[in-house]
C-alpha cells in the first residue's frame, strides 16, 4: 500500500482530541491561576509594604514553590493531566517540568543524575528565554533608545 493511502487509513481510525474542550479548561484554569497570582501580588505589596514590581517577584517564587512542592508530593501530574495548558503555560508548568526531571534522575547521583538532567525539559525554556530577552532588549534599544 502506498504511504499516502496508508496515512488516510490511519487518519480514519485515529481518535480526535477534544481541542476546544481542552482549550476551554486551559483558559479557565490558567485564568484562575492569573487571579491567584494577582491576589498574591496585592497581598504581598499590602502587608510587606513593597512596590508591586517587587511583590510580583515574590508571587512568581511562591507559584514556583507550590508547583515544585506538589510535584514532589506526587499529585501535581494528575492536576496537569486535567488542567493541561492551564497549568503548563504559567510558571507552574516550568516548575513542574524541572522538578519532575529532578525527581526522576536524583537516584543516579547528584552530579551525573540530578545536575545533568534536571533541565532536560525546562532547559529549552531557559535558553530560548535568555536568547529572546537579549534580542528584544536589543530591539528596544535600537528602536526606542
Amino acid at each position: 500500500m502506498e504511504k499516502i493511502k496508508y496515512q488516510k487509513l490511519v487518519d480514519k481510525h485515529t481518535p480526535k482530541e477534544n481541542i476546544l474542550l481542552n482549550a476551554l479548561i486551559g483558559f479557565i484554569v490558567g485564568g484562575f491561576l492569573g487571579v491567584v497570582g494577582e491576589v498574591l501580588v496585592e497581598l504581598y505589596s499590602y502587608y510587606l509594604h513593597i512596590p508591586s514590581k517587587d511583590a510580583s517577584v515574590f508571587m512568581i517564587v511562591t507559584l514556583i514553590f507550590i508547583g515544585c512542592f506538589l510535584t514532589a508530593l506526587g499529585f501535581f501530574d494528575n492536576l496537569v493531566k486535567f488542567a493541561k495548558c492551564g497549568l503548563i503555560v504559567p510558571i507552574t508548568g516550568f516548575a513542574h517540568a524541572m522538578m519532575s526531571a529532578a525527581l526522576e534522575y536524583r537516584k543516579e547521583g547528584f552530579v551525573t543524575g540530578l545536575g545533568a538532567n534536571m533541565f532536560k525539559l525546562a532547559g529549552s525554556v531557559i535558553l530560548f528565554g535568555v536568547v529572546s530577552a537579549y534580542v528584544f532588549g536589543l530591539l528596544r534599544i535600537i528602536l526606542i533608545g
Binding site: 485515529t14 506526587g74 503548563i88 519532575s100 526522576e104
Partner: peptide, 17 residues
C-alpha cells in the same frame, strides 16, 4: 517512560492514541 518519553512525574497531556 523515562527512557522513551518524559519523566514519570511530568503530567503533560498525552493523546488518546
Amino acid at each position: 517512560e523515562k527512557q522513551f518519553r518524559q519523566p514519570v512525574e511530568y503530567g503533560g497531556p498525552k493523546p488518546k492514541r
